[in-house]
């Protein structure tokens, strides 16, 4: 075995994989959050729809997104594999375990929390990613009067626009944009399916608990444990990834449900 495979096959190397893919997924959450904040813009979804086109057509973003899908799968399956191989290190279980006396519940249940998140990712991607790429998403025409700035919104029949996701033209003082309307898809889903909203909110709670432990744990695995920076890492893990990000994401389905 060469040093590279030896490193990644060792107990520390396996954790290194979890830490690196985990931190990459954390960085994705920031981008995803910032982009999706456009859902809250009162423009009938124009900005969000244009952003969706950009994210699915830009070659650099597309490359990174494949790396992202790979990281999600790798993180999930490596995590499941680790849970089972770690179980083998204790073939006879204790009759009595007082776990809360020495550790936090979240840190002991990363596998369970991760499984909830994995189920969520599958539902989430089949709802929006798959529908947007392969399913039926309505098209909308936004007509903006360049003089007055008033935007007129009209639903289009999708059969006219099978090929292009976005068509933009300026003619006689009017800008016309015809775009695949993911915004409408999102708002309808959350308006009609209360159980989907509940699943999203529950999953964001799982994300919160997973990251409160996971973010700082990743740094520990990488060997970054320093008195000067531990406080900052802990703060970011709890407040940003554990509270702000999950609340921000959970607010989106709730916003459309009560809109």
């Amino acid at each position: 075995m060469n040093w590279f495979t030896k490193m990644f096959n060792s107990s520390i190397g396996q954790k290194l994989i979890m830490a690196l893919t985990g931190l990459f997924l954390c960085s994705f959450l920031i981008i995803h959050m910032v982009g999706n904040l456009q859902l809250f813009k009162a423009d009938s979804g124009l900005a969000f729809n244009k952003y969706a086109v950009f994210m699915t057509t830009n070659p650099l973003i597309k490359t990174v997104s494949y790396l992202l899908y790979f990281s999600i799968l790798f993180h999930a399956f490596k995590g499941i594999w680790l849970v089972f191989s770690n179980k083998k290190a204790r073939p006879v279980q204790y009759a009595m375990v007082d776990g809360k006396a020495n550790s936090h519940w979240t840190s002991r249940n990363m596998g369970l929390l991760g499984t909830i998140i994995l189920v969520f990712v599958v539902v989430h991607m089949s709802n929006f990613w798959y529908e947007y790429k392969f399913g039926h998403v309505p098209y909308t025409r936004y007509t903006e009067n360049l003089m007055t700035g008033i935007v007129d919104v009209e639903e289009m029949d999708e059969k006219y626009f099978q090929q292009e996701k976005l068509k933009e033209e300026v003619y006689l003082g009017e800008r016309t944009i015809i775009v695949k309307d993911l915004y409408k898809e999102v708002s309808l889903e959350f308006k009609e399916e209360w159980w989907l909203v509940a699943l999203y909110v529950l999953s964001m709670a799982a994300v919160s608990f997973h990251l409160v432990h996971g973010f700082k744990s990743a740094f520990q695995t990488l060997g970054i444990n320093h008195r000067k920076y531990n406080g900052l890492i802990h703060f970011i893990g709890v407040w940003f990834f554990g509270i702000i990000i999950p609340i921000g994401f959970a607010a989106m389905p709730l916003y459309f449900m009560f809109k």
Partner: peptide, 22 residues
């Protein structure tokens, strides 16, 4: 030492901190 630790069949670390607490 890490090689030997893995060969002995110990599990890997989840950073729960239970070890240090106990």
């Amino acid at each position: 030492m890490v090689n030997q630790m893995d060969a002995e069949g110990f599990g890997s670390c989840t950073n729960t901190g239970a070890c240090s607490a106990e």
